[in-house]
Design a protein around this nucleic acid. Sequence first.
DNA 1: AGGTCTTTGTAACTATTGTTACCTACATTT
DNA 2: AAATGTAGGTAACAATAGTTACAAAGACCT
Lengths: 210, 210
Amino acid sequence: MIHQLKASYGAVFENDLLNEILQVGTFKEIPENYTLMDIGEYVKGMPLLVSGAIKVIREDHNGDELLLYYLEKGDTCSMTLNCCMGSTKSEIRAIAETDAKLIMVPVQKMEEWTVKYKSWRNFVFLSYQNRLNEMLNTIDSIAFFKMDMRLLAYLKEKSRINAGEIIQNTHQEIAYDLHTSRVVISRLLKKLEQIGKIELHRNYIKIIDL
Amino acid sequence: MIHQLKASYGAVFENDLLNEILQVGTFKEIPENYTLMDIGEYVKGMPLLVSGAIKVIREDHNGDELLLYYLEKGDTCSMTLNCCMGSTKSEIRAIAETDAKLIMVPVQKMEEWTVKYKSWRNFVFLSYQNRLNEMLNTIDSIAFFKMDMRLLAYLKEKSRINAGEIIQNTHQEIAYDLHTSRVVISRLLKKLEQIGKIELHRNYIKIIDL
DNA sequence: AGGTCTTTGTAACTATTGTTACCTACATTT
DNA sequence: AAATGTAGGTAACAATAGTTACAAAGACCT
């Protein structure tokens, strides 16, 4: 665990804090598609992401979904911070986009460390800042862009997250993330293929030039 | 200023903190429609809202707008918190929805108070929590609801904020807030009038039963 | 009263997105 | 090979929202 922690957070946290994290934190490896947190659940700990990616999803009362943003190495879930402080239920669902490694820190330490460590304060505030900015991006995307542009941005982000030009999703899965229907996605993907930006295959999409 | 502060924050902050705020804070009264902060500006201070309401707006590169949420008495602007900590430019515009009173606190105190006062920590974290939740509501609204429902929710919220059944806006102004066209708003408002929920007049709308 | 500006109403049309239905292709199991 | 399940393609149509254009009504000024 110590190597994992240092590699991802060694430059961010001071040594005393790193040691405390080692003492109280628990290391977890989670597989792709594992649901880290679900809507309505209470939060037990705060995840510090070491490797992999987590996707954060909003769901409405009908079960309709919308992808909010991804968390990556060095990120934590601000929604979790919220829940910890306010001890309220989670408003979102977090699913492992790839296999992921993370360190879970008990909620109780949150406030203690906020007082004690400047680096922790910076981390928490930076985390809030990043999350608010991601939310703004999401809002920009649905408010100001049409579906074709949103799909394009989605493919770009997805290939960045997975660090490769192959996107392993069915059209239906993409439709869920963007909160639209499979037919709409198939239609728009076909257009992107026709202008040479992607190649369509069963169960995966190959990025040519976005 | 002391009365204003105690009335709005007396129950939230401990006495020592209230005194510090009185020492370093400056009291401001701002008129309706005053732009408190604009996109791209750097932030000088942190506003603690004492009375009135502030509307927070997002704008895209074309100048298209979207209402994000309102701030009310006891609220502060988390976007400002962000900017203070990260010393980045504002991503949003804040406009006085009504005449408003607020206390401006210099940015430098932020971190100091976070260490020193438990009540300040709670306030800041609660503020982030509220803002993230408002952003989620905004996302729900644009992602999951159609324009007629969004308009209805808008009218409800607006009459709550202004504490009255009269909404003083032109259709064009509503269209800007919801990021659609005037014609669409006029059309939907007319429908709401026909089913007896509102009464349309020049420059104002009377809420009958929402 | 006449002129001008702002606001609202409305029609006609277009564009985008959502829905339904059905077909084809591929993979897996029996 | 036949059966089954999943993924993707496509057409036809419906619903919603955006655009253009113009008329009518109210407000305000001279």
